[in-house]
Amino acid sequence: MSDFMGGLSKPPEPPTRSEPSRGVRGRTRETRDGPRGPESVTGFGTGTQRGGGSVAVLRDGAKGFWGETLQLARAVGRTMGVTFKNLVARKPVTVMYPDVRRQYPDRFRGVLALTYDKETGEENCIGCRLCEYICPPQVIKVEMLKAKERNWAKHFTLELYSCEFCELCVQVCPTDAIVMLKTFELATSDRRELLLDKDRLHALGLEHEHSWATGTRLRDMQAPPKAARGEGHRDGATRGEAAVTAPAAAAKPAGTAALAGAGSAEESATPAPAAKADGPSTAEAVKTAAAPPAAPGEVKTKETAE
């Protein structure tokens, strides 16, 4: 192992700590000296092959003709016993899908839809385009309609045929307007049917059961305790200078110290974020390039290494 990808928090021990693998149900399997040579040919196995090693019916040495025949008979019995057990004792696990459906879990990530407000009956979507920005495959297109009290989505199209169902759009939605449904039946004879517009999305939302996740719920679930949340925004220093969240303004002050890194020669003198946090919680097997000039070269070595 070359060391370039090292930077391990503790130096790796040489691979001598070889434990014999724990055998199953008491059968201990000892480690052996090395790959078996081509000379241990027994039984029904055929002669030596070059390169491919040899063939032996039993690794534990020759048992003789009768031993092997008995072993064969026993193996046949056990193998066919398992299949027979499944034949008679176990019910099929098949779900007869169009007739019978299994219970989909609450968090099922299915087809996307838009929702109406339950009380007022208004559309929830305010056309803020956050989902459009975050969508990794860029399947959402929103146009905002500005109005006095609140904004609306003028157009909302979703190309479901390219959607990867990652739920990021649901997660970022500030008004819980976009949700996922517990349905996944997209099969169609015409791809254009999967280009959903606003009305279709709303109709889908009325038609099918919604899954659990909404933007608020997801964000609440992920939210760290209040203190930590504030820390995340402002007080990056305790966690190593650079825990910076979305608003770029917040990023600046904390960033300048830490933004020394690979790439720019001007800043190269700045040391990289200092000591690694030594708690067990940080990822040990990672490393920041300390010396920027070396960085490109390191990348190259990695590529060749693969």
Partner: peptide, 10 residues
């Protein structure tokens, strides 16, 4: 059918 039942299928 026989193989299917053996493999937990229908």
């Amino acid at each position: 059918k026989f193989a299917a039942r053996m493999q937990s299928r229908i």
